[in-house]
Each structure stands twice: as structure tokens, then as C-alpha cells.
């Protein structure tokens, strides 16, 4: 147990809460998806810092699963949801 890693995890956690503003007011749909990807990376960093701070090597496996499945949602979004939609859909050009 070392408190400095937990303090850094505590510093990284409000970055997720701050990035929520971009999800709420992002003009295009890709902005929201990019913010979700930044949340995934922040979560991986928080898990790594917590695993060093709480002496629990199992959390490295959870971070590994997060890193494996990080691209899945974005690739699905680009290939399924965002493709071939018109101008008036999902707030692309017209909100």
C-alpha cells in the first residue's frame, strides 16, 4: 500500500468528469465517441495506478481486458452508425 499512487489515481479521476462536457455538447457524433475512448484510456491508467497502490496484481488483467476491447466500440461506431447518414442525422451538420 503506497499512498502516492492512489493520490495520482484520485487526480486522474476528475479528468473523466471533466471530459463529460464534450459528450454533452459535442457538435458531431465522432466527438462523443472520441471522448468515450479517452475515458477508456483514463480508466486503464487509473487501474494501473490502483494496482500499484493497493498491491493487487489482478487489476493488471482488468486493464489488459480494457485495452483489448477499447477499439471495438469505436470501430463499430465508424463502420455501422456513422457511415452513410444524411446531414440531418445525429447532429452532424445540423444539430
Amino acid at each position: 500500500m503506497s499512498w502516492i499512487h492512489i493520490i495520482f489515481a484520485l487526480i486522474l479521476l476528475p479528468a473523466i468528469a471533466t471530459g463529460m462536457f464534450r459528450i454533452l455538447r459535442g457538435p458531431t457524433a465522432a466527438d462523443r465517441m472520441m471522448t468515450a475512448q479517452l475515458f477508456g484510456t483514463c480508466g486503464v491508467a487509473i487501474l494501473l495506478l490502483l494496482s500499484a497502490g493497493m498491491n493487487n496484481p489482478v487489476l493488471l488483467d482488468i486493464a489488459l481486458v480494457f485495452a483489448l476491447l477499447a477499439a471495438l466500440a469505436t470501430v463499430t461506431f465508424v463502420s455501422r452508425t456513422w457511415r452513410d447518414n444524411n446531414k440531418n442525422n445525429h447532429g452532424n451538420l445540423i444539430q
Binding site: 465522432a30 484510456t41 494501473l48 486493464a63 485495452a67 483489448l68 477499447a70 477499439a71 469505436t74 465508424v78
Partner: peptide
Amino acid sequence: IWLLVLIASSASCHLI
């Protein structure tokens, strides 16, 4: 973990 995050972020940012 870092390598996987690098691959995932580069692929998805390029796609976007």
C-alpha cells in the same frame, strides 16, 4: 497493455 492501447488508439483515430 501499452502496446494494445497504442494499436487501438491509432486504429480508431485513423478510422474517425
